[in-house]
């Protein structure tokens, strides 16, 4: 089965892959909620949560190095939190004779944000890599997201691949006409011109999508679509899935309570 760069799903056999998508979605969301609720500086709890996330990665048979690297993608955003180190109140650490002083609270908050972001990201990666998107859609329906919204999501996902291919064709057509643009030497027009020509492509893509939307509607109507979103019922949760769900929720409750018990 060929892998598309738009589809992070990894078709493996693992207990996590086999788990009901509804259970996975709920547990992943609750996990991220618990991470968010963990107080800053509760390092023991945060480490335990990290261990849970890594266990999920291992159980899902994913490459740990890959997940740890990929989870770092959001870390540049932490630059936004960097100034806390200087501006937060409280006890300060003098950095020798440089005249720079750092706030202890600020450092703690920055590191906590870093860590929470990183751990949450790992779980989101596990969810996306071990659950096919159609299953995720079913899970979204099951947790009572508006049916219309899930239907729009489903269509969007289906046409992502088609339209990204179209966008790539437009880009290739541009690049093959203009050669490799060398921005440094300002070949290929001014930045403003380049931006507007990218805009022209966006307009072109929009027009085609609009027309495609009409054709898709025709195809749906031809098979009886009447504006109401209908789908098959969800099978009941198996006893096994239910056990995993309950066990997972209990574990997460304990992780939630820990820092509060020892604070």
């Amino acid at each position: 089965m060929h892998v598309h760069f738009l589809d992070p799903y990894q078709d493996l056999r693992s207990p996590v892959h086999a788990l009901d998508a509804r259970v996975k979605l709920v547990l992943a969301l609750v996990f991220i909620l618990v991470v968010s609720l963990t107080p800053n500086g509760a390092w023991a709890s945060l480490l335990l949560l990290f261990a849970v996330a890594v266990s999920a990665v291992l159980l899902a048979g994913l490459n740990v190095g890959y997940v740890l690297r990929r989870a770092g993608l959001a870390l540049p955003f932490a630059l936004a939190a960097l100034p806390l180190v200087f501006t937060a109140p409280g006890a300060r650490i003098e950095l020798g004779a440089t005249g720079i002083s750092l706030s202890q609270i600020g450092i703690e908050r920055l590191l906590s944000i870093f860590f929470k972001s990183y751990v949450s990201m790992q779980m989101a990666i596990v969810l996306a890599s071990a659950t096919s998107f159609p299953d995720l859609l079913q899970a979204m329906r099951a947790i009572r997201l508006p049916k219309l919204l899930v239907a729009i999501f489903g269509l969007m996902w289906r046409y992502l691949f088609v339209l990204v291919d179209e966008a790539m064709r437009l880009l290739r057509a541009r690049d093959s006409r203009s050669g490799a643009l060398d921005a440094a030497r300002n070949v290929g027009g001014s930045i403003s011109w380049r931006a507007r020509s990218a805009g022209g492509m966006a307009g072109n893509l929009f027009m085609r999508s609009f027309e495609r939307g009409d054709r898709i509607y025709d195809a749906m109507a031809a098979r009886g679509y009447d504006g109401e979103v209908r789908s098959m019922r969800h099978p009941a949760l198996s006893a096994q899935s239910l056990r995993v769900l309950v066990a997972g929720l209990v574990l997460l409750s304990v992780l939630f309570a820990l820092p509060r018990l020892f604070a």
Binding site: L155, W157, R215, I216, Y225, M232
Partner: peptide, 21 residues
Amino acid sequence: QPDDQLFSPTVFDDVAFGPIY
């Protein structure tokens, strides 16, 4: 255009669409 006709995420969903409606 089969890409217009196949608007569902999976083959099953697409073939089941008409019968469901």
